[in-house]
Design a protein around this nucleic acid. Structure first.
Length: 303
DNA sequence: ACAAGCGACGC
DNA sequence: CCAGCTTCGCTTGT
């Protein structure tokens, strides 16, 4: 059954993409999402300034109705926050996403099920969400540059090139057969901080001292969210932009700052000493987070 | 099954 | 474009 979806982007009144301090941006984005939530069935925030909406229920699958809903939404965001937004309505998330990018400042683009195939056909494969430079290059290697060409490919050779998951996704998406549901946002599964070193170096002490404030910052974020971690990583980006990581999993989740600092220090040391090249950026990451609402799962570890 | 490491993508 | 931050899939090893 056809589904209507939309996605919006925060724009200034003049249509320019707004830039401002981080906290402020997040606060505004949150208010916009709040406004939007009232007018849709399901809202899936993706990134700071975008969201997918499910409005099949409210529109009854009628694209005319869907477009009035979108117009109301845009109007509400404009009057309450002074921001324009660009919206795409389509039968699937992939197509809605492309549609929303089509007319940039203050746009509203509708692609009905009938139009979907034709709409996709002539577009470059890079327009597909999930297809970046590497995948596009690989596709070009087998003579595929448009979504139409991709739609006509056999799944098998694609699978050899890209693996099962991506191959199936590419095939479905190109054929407008993507049926990814719009899902309410989940909690983050990992948190990280990364910094750029003042000078490229591989001296462990120097690196750790520059990383130190970021570790503390990460920890306060954890505290603020009342969550614990069970996995710690150190991340290094070398001068040639390649990435190295060292990670370790703990026996049980913790939120202890000392633990975080000690593990991070050891991991950074390992990274720095095993690297043949100087490091350009370093970071720390915590993963396998368990939250306050999830605190009961702690008992599972103890049993 | 789990852990570690890497790379690609996107905002 | 870059920096900073997420998420996911794949591969290898135990």
């Amino acid at each position: 059954m056809p589904i209507s979806l939309a996605k919006k982007k925060l724009e200034g009144k003049d249509g320019s993409f707004i830039r401002m301090q981080h906290g402020k941006y997040e606060a505004i984005s949150e208010r916009v999402m709040q406004v939007a939530r009232e007018g849709v069935d399901v809202l899936e925030q993706s990134g700071i300034d975008e969201a997918f909406f499910e409005i099949t229920g409210r529109s009854g699958g009628d694209y005319g109705k869907a477009s009035s809903i979108a117009r109301e939404l845009k109007e509400k965001i404009l009057s309450s926050e002074g921001l324009t937004s660009s919206v795409g309505i389509a039968p699937s998330k992939v197509v809605a996403k492309i549609a929303s990018d089509l007319q940039k400042p203050n746009g509203l683009t509708i692609i009905t099920p009938d139009e979907t195939k034709r709409f996709l056909m002539m577009l470059s494969v890079e327009k597909l969400y999930g297809v970046g430079p590497k995948t596009a290059q690989a596709l070009k290697g087998i003579g595929v540059e448009t979504i139409g060409q991709l739609a006509g490919q056999n799944p098998e050779p694609l699978e050899r090139l890209f693996g099962r998951k991506l191959a199936v996704y590419l095939h479905d998406a190109a054929n407008g057969a993507d049926e990814e549901p719009v899902t309410e946002g989940r909690e983050a599964t990992q948190l990280s901080r990364i910094i750029t070193l003042k000078k490229n170096t591989r001296d462990p002490e120097e690196i750790f001292s520059q990383l130190s404030p970021a570790i503390d910052d990460l920890h306060s974020r954890l505290l603020a969210e009342n969550r614990m971690f069970r996995n710690v990583s150190a991340i290094a980006i070398l001068f040639d932009l390649s990435t190295r990581t060292r990670s370790m999993t703990l026996d049980a989740p913790t939120a202890d700052l000392r633990m975080l600092r000690d593990k991070a220090r050891a991991l950074v040391r390992e990274l720095a000493m095993s690297s043949e090249k100087d490091l350009r950026r370093v970071g720390v990451r915590v993963a396998e987070l368990v939250g306050a609402a999830d605190q009961s799962s702690l008992t599972e570890y103890l049993e």
